[in-house]
Design a binder for these strands. Structure first.
Lengths: 225, 225, 225, 225
DNA sequence: TATGAATGAGTTTTCATTCAT
DNA sequence: TATGAATGAAAACTCATTCAT
């Protein structure tokens, strides 16, 4: 049951050729999969994307290549799975935070969103950095879009519930805000920036978001469309 | 004047192992190098980064592999050169726009910056999309940083000349703004977005920047530090 | 006993970059490595050193290139391994013969040495000729020196035990004798010489060695240094 | 005329496919050829046989590849020419020394021979070491044999004129002696040996030759065949 | 005649994937 | 089911040789 939940979070259904061969049924298998995932991140970080080979991942995970291929029919499927699980966690964290902030003032919503996304990324700092590296190599665009859409739905619902704000085009503003948020955070993780500076830039990011939302909202007392 | 001196200093000098083997001397050779550059972009876009092979690039450029290796000792050096030339053009465009806006009102500066960066990227749309793809694979981090620093110097100088605004920490705000600008634009080019929507998002981006700068500037009449 | 300890110490340990990737564990793998060794010799003899390519060796061995690279990280490592095994056999044969002749008359020692070396080389006639061909291309100098030192130790010990001879400078004479022996034999194998003539030259070689040792030994009754 | 002499010393007529394209006619061309020869040796010594490329030789010689190919139709021809000239010089030196020692006592003949050969090799120490490196790669066996035969003829004639010695089989002894001389010297140049030790070994080599000749000559008073 | 840009066959090496044990 | 040896297509890179200028 846990397993099923584990998979079902993906709104995006993986295309046939990218799906895992089998879901881990036993505890041992689960541990194996876990080890493989972890190994993938490790190798990516320590060796770089071009040296990410199936053999190396298997070795690092402590299993044989053959075993790995029993779970994932090819390299792409593996990366697809790792990425999927990661994005799932991010999306869920943001969704949860948004749900909890329905009805809050706009400024608070903004801060909550930034903090949730930022914290989720920082919590999985390794994975975050590692997966930015392969994002373009594998066909994970669909996965990313799926994640974005989940988050977009969550934030749109949240912003729609703001008691102190209305927008002429909520969808556009929301999309634009998220695009900025994702892009900016990506920059911060991709470039080699000291944690201290990164934190100050994180604060500025929060300020940006608030300022943008303020600027984008319909002037108080203005009529709806 | 100081700024100009700075710029040339900041121009990143390629590390030994990434530099080109020789520069084209004859007209024929120049055309060859040009064709190789163009082919690199083409292959990247049509085949994706993992299928970017030296053979394919050479074939697309209409030259033999050997010829390519006469100019670039290996794939990395080629990508480094292509990236370098591209970033140079971007940085120069922004620098020029900034110089022309010294003394303008803050809002105008913001718009000018966004427009200059956006236009430069859009003008080289193909290269832009193509090079985002390889950015992580090759060691172009240094190049990117060099480009960023050139732009940062140019914008800092511009913002310092704004008659209607002062900042408590210009460097931080400037850095933060650019980080957002670069990240957001990256997102827009990386994801598959229709031009129409991209343009609307571009407008929102301009709004964001203005709003952030307004929010970050020291309240009128407030004392300096 | 001291000598034996020495021998094992002198066995040249391959430098990191030239050592084999893994040793064959299963019977199948052992046969594979054996085939690769044999194929190396064959290709060397039939095609010459410049046409000794990894592909050709693999093909002749009846395995795929990939397999070869599982055992040897590159061509040099392969040649190093082949050479090492060959030199080991030679050194061992000579050592054994020397040990068996301790205490014999000088003339007999000389003949035994020449015969042992000559026979060992002749027994592996193909390998002998093949490896002379690559000796200069690969960095096998260390291996060769190691082999020489083993032999030198063995012969020095033997000559020191001669009841009918003493030398002013045993080390020099020994070294000089071996240098001549190795060089002369090399000439005989390298040049295209008919076996009949080669045999006669082999006899002359034995004569040379005896004559040199006679000439070099301290006159009977002369005092030691 | 000098040029003709320069070529004619070769007893061995180069096979069609290995001969130079044209002999240098003008002083400038002569200098060019000289530079190419010198460059070949240099590259061989500094880069090793596998890095001996036509481009590198041309560059080191200060000419373009194209020019080099005007003199030598291919790499082999170049190496053939370099080797040929070198061997010629060696053979000539030995021949001259032998001619001068006709009628001398056997022991003196022996010493003269060793010294002449040794000195000739040492005088061209660089070339000697360099050419041992390529000796096996190119088809220079014929050249070497030619050189050997010239020397063999010279020494045979010399030994035949010895007043104090006769041999049962002069040809065999002569051949055997030279084979030993060549091989031993090769060993001394090939291995990395300090000049001091090399000199002592050189003395031992002279002793060897004398001893062998003494041992091989027909006992005084014994009847001829 | 000299040059050096261009050629492309040939080499080394890697690595995703299969399959006998 | 797990293993890891074997595979071989495909990649990067070299270099002898040619030929337009």
């Amino acid at each position: 049951m846990i397993i099923q939940l584990w998979n079902s979070l993906l709104t995006t259904v993986p295309p046939q050729h990218l799906s895992a061969r089998k879901s881990p049924r036993q505890a041992r298998a689960l541990a194996t999969v876990e080890a493989i995932f972890e190994a993938t991140i490790q190798v990516l970080l320590s060796e770089g994307p071009t040296r990410l080979t199936t053999t190396r991942v298997a070795a690092r995970a402590g299993v044989s290549v053959g075993t790995m291929y029993q779970y994932y029919p090819h390299k792409e499927a593996l990366l697809y799975a790792v990425t999927g699980r990661y994005l799932d966690a991010i999306a869920e964290a943001v969704e949860k935070a948004c749900r909890a902030s329905h009805g809050a003032p706009l400024t608070e919503m903004s801060d909550v969103l930034v903090k949730a996304y930022w914290d989720a990324k920082t919590l999985k700092r390794n994975a975050t950095r590692a997966l930015y590296l392969v994002a373009m190599e594998v066909d994970t665009a669909a996965l990313t879009e799926g994640c974005i859409q989940r988050i977009e739905a969550a934030t749109a619902a949240m912003f729609a519930s703001a008691p102190d704000a209305e927008f002429d085009d909520l969808v556009l503003v929301n999309h634009s805000l998220l695009n900025m948020l994702f892009g900016t955070v990506r920059s911060l993780f991709t470039r080699e920036i000291s944690p201290a500076i990164a934190n100050r830039l994180g604060d500025e990011l929060a300020l940006m978001c608030r300022a943008y939302l303020e600027a984008a909202k319909r002037p108080a007392g203005a009529p709806g469309r």
